[in-house]
Measured scan of single mutants.
Amino acid sequence: MATVKFKYKGEEKEVDISKIKKVWRVGKMISFTYDEGGGKTGRGAVSEKDAPKELLQMLEKQ
């Protein structure tokens, strides 16, 4: 499965596409929420050019 690499609050993070719950576009950025486990929801964003094609496909399906 594909992963998304991004920075959040200065920390490098990587999340599996299957854990992503919601995806939306903000200008040229793709924002998303994902399941961190333990009932927590994380947030992240990547630029449109750095987003994996699976993430862009999720955006188109909504």
Rank of each mutant, 00 (worst) to 15 (best):
V23H: 03
G38H: 09
E12D: 13
K28D: 08
V26E: 14
V26W: 04
E60Y: 05
M29K: 07
F6Y: 04
V26C: 15
D35N: 04
P52A: 04
T3C: 10
K7L: 14
K13Y: 10
E48T: 07
V4G: 00
I20V: 04
G10K: 01
G44L: 01
S31R: 06
M58V: 12
M58F: 05
L56R: 09
E14H: 04
D16S: 07
E54F: 11
K53Y: 08
M1T: 09
G39H: 13
D50C: 13
K28Y: 08
E48D: 11
K49F: 08
K28C: 15
K61Q: 10
I20R: 00
E48W: 04
R25C: 15
M1S: 14
G37S: 11
E36L: 09
D50Y: 07
G42R: 06
K9A: 11
E48V: 10
V26Q: 11
K7R: 07
I17S: 03
V26I: 08
K53C: 15
V15M: 02
S47W: 10
F6T: 02
M1R: 03
D35H: 06
G27W: 04
G42V: 08
T33P: 00
V26R: 06
K49P: 07
T33M: 07
S31Y: 09
V46M: 05
K13A: 03
K40P: 12
F6W: 13
E48M: 04
T41K: 15
D35F: 08
V4T: 01
G39R: 10
A2L: 13
Y8V: 11
V26F: 05
M58N: 05
W24S: 07
K5S: 02
Q62H: 15
V23Y: 05
L59W: 11
Q62V: 05
G44Q: 01
E14C: 07
T41R: 11
G37Y: 07
V4W: 00
E48H: 05
I30N: 01
K53S: 15
K61D: 10
E12R: 04
Y34K: 00
A45C: 13
M58W: 05
W24Q: 12
A45T: 07
Q62E: 11
W24I: 11
G38W: 05
V26A: 10
Q62P: 10
Y34S: 01
S31I: 06
T3L: 06
K13D: 01
G38D: 06
E14R: 03
G38F: 06
K49T: 11
G39M: 05
K53E: 15
S47Y: 08
G42W: 04
K7G: 07
K7E: 14
A51D: 02
M29Q: 11
